[in-house]
Amino acid sequence: MNRVHVCLVSAQPIPNLIPLRMEELRPEKVILLVSPDMKLQAERLEKIIKGWAIKTEKISIAPYDLESARETCIEVLLRHDNDEIILNATGGTKIMAFAAFEVFREKEKPVVYVDTQNNYIDFLSPERKKLVSRGVMKVPIYLASYGQNIISETNEVDVPDTHWAAVEAIIQEGERLERGISILNRYVAPLRNARTFPFEIDIEDEDFKNVQFQGIVSILSRYGLLTLKENYIQFPSLSSVEFSSGGWLEEHIFKIVKSLNPTDVRMNVKVKWARPSESKNEYDVLLTHSNRLFIIECKTKRFSGKDISHFGEDSIYKLDSLRDAAGGLYGKGMLVSFRRLTDEQKRRLKTNKLEFCEGQNIKNLKEIIKQWIQK
């Protein structure tokens, strides 16, 4: 006798996947009931499930025809009369879910509902004690279920020890380096496209004499991330450029998040969307906790004047849209800004239900993130 899950495919794939990773419920086969508009989503699920060495079968179902949907479910039960068959009634249209639930209850077959918000699996029929759904979803699977495939990321083992030391020094100095970091960003940001290293860049006298600029350059020089000359600075590698232009904040956040023991955490993640768009996106820090995806966007740039509008249209819009596209109903987003935000920026973030941490509050970032992911 095999254990078989019957899943109703919808735009929210995670509830269909969670029970498959629970030892108490893990099946040998999954049947996906697919409405015409969910064929692409079913393909994504099928690819993931097969990767877990679980057999799959896709069956078409009428999403808004109660009797037709009932007949489909009855046929499924007849074909698997000798198997332990379980209905996951979390997805699908209301008509699909009602029809499937009704048929399975009539035949006294188990029906479960995955409550992602409260982190448990409820047994609707026959009633029994709820099962806590442990954190089983890792970042690559979460992204793939929404049609995004990772093409590159920065691994922790690839981060030199000198980076961690430099980050600690920058965080300790805090606001005393704000102006210096702003000046440095102006010079370094264009170098992300440089391909030949070492790379030298001239610094204007006024900037070179700025005390805060000298402070951040001194820290980076101390840890071998750049070399300070009479009127220019030299970067030894693209990695040093990326770190100096804001990568240090990503690495700081990654280290904090990892210390909180989430299910998974990744940084500097580049993804390519599966068809039909095949566009690309980049995430600073991603983590999964309690089977939810959390997206953290990092900013060290100062936004003022015309940049405020750009900030609203770019950073907040990007974070909001990616949170919805990659995280689904329960995905969350946070902006971490080394610089203080304006009241307008905070208002936009709150309107879009996005968390934020700014300026000197970064020193309390561990507690802020801890409370955020446990809400």
Rank of each mutant, 00 (worst) to 15 (best):
Y120A: 03
I121K: 00
D122Q: 07
D122H: 01
D122A: 00
L124M: 14
L124I: 15
L124Q: 11
S125H: 13
P126N: 07
P126I: 09
E127K: 12
E127W: 05
R128C: 09
K129C: 10
K130R: 14
L131Q: 00
L131P: 02
L131Y: 00
L131K: 01
V132R: 12
S133Q: 11
G135S: 13
G135Y: 01
V136D: 07
V136H: 02
V136N: 07
M137D: 12
M137I: 15
M137R: 00
M137L: 15
K138N: 13
K138C: 12
K138M: 10
V139A: 08
V139S: 01
P140G: 10
I141E: 14
I141P: 01
I141D: 15
I141F: 11
Y142K: 04
L143A: 06
L143K: 00
S145G: 03
Y146E: 10
Y146R: 01
Y146M: 13
Q148V: 02
Q148N: 12
N149M: 03
N149Y: 04
N149G: 04
I150Q: 04
I150M: 10
I151D: 05
E153T: 15
T154F: 09
T154N: 15
T154S: 13
T154D: 13
N155E: 15
E156N: 07
V157L: 12
D158T: 11
P160F: 03
D161R: 09
D161I: 02
H163M: 12
H163F: 14
H163E: 09
W164N: 07
W164M: 10
W164E: 14
A165Y: 03
A165Q: 13
A166R: 00
V167K: 00
V167C: 14
E168K: 14
E168T: 05
E168Y: 02
A169G: 04
A169L: 07
A169W: 03
A169C: 14
I170Q: 01
I170L: 15
I171R: 01
I171A: 04
I171L: 13
Q172I: 08
E173S: 06
E173N: 14
E173H: 10
G174N: 14
G174T: 06
E175Y: 13
E175F: 05
E175T: 14
R176P: 06
L177E: 07
E178R: 00
R179F: 07
R179H: 08
R179G: 05
R179T: 09
R179Y: 10
R179P: 06
R179D: 07
G180P: 03
G180F: 04
I181D: 09
I181S: 00
S182Y: 08
S182D: 05
I183Q: 00
N185P: 05
N185M: 06
N185R: 07
R186I: 03
R186V: 10
Y187A: 08
A189D: 10
P190I: 13
L191T: 04
L191S: 11
L191E: 06
R192L: 08
N193R: 11
N193M: 10
N193F: 12
A194F: 15
A194S: 14
A194E: 15
R195P: 01
T196Q: 09
T196C: 04
P198H: 11
P198G: 14
F199L: 15
F199R: 12
E200Y: 06
I201L: 03
I201T: 12
D202W: 07
D202M: 08
D202N: 11
I203E: 09
E204C: 01
E204V: 06
D205S: 08
D205W: 02
E206H: 12
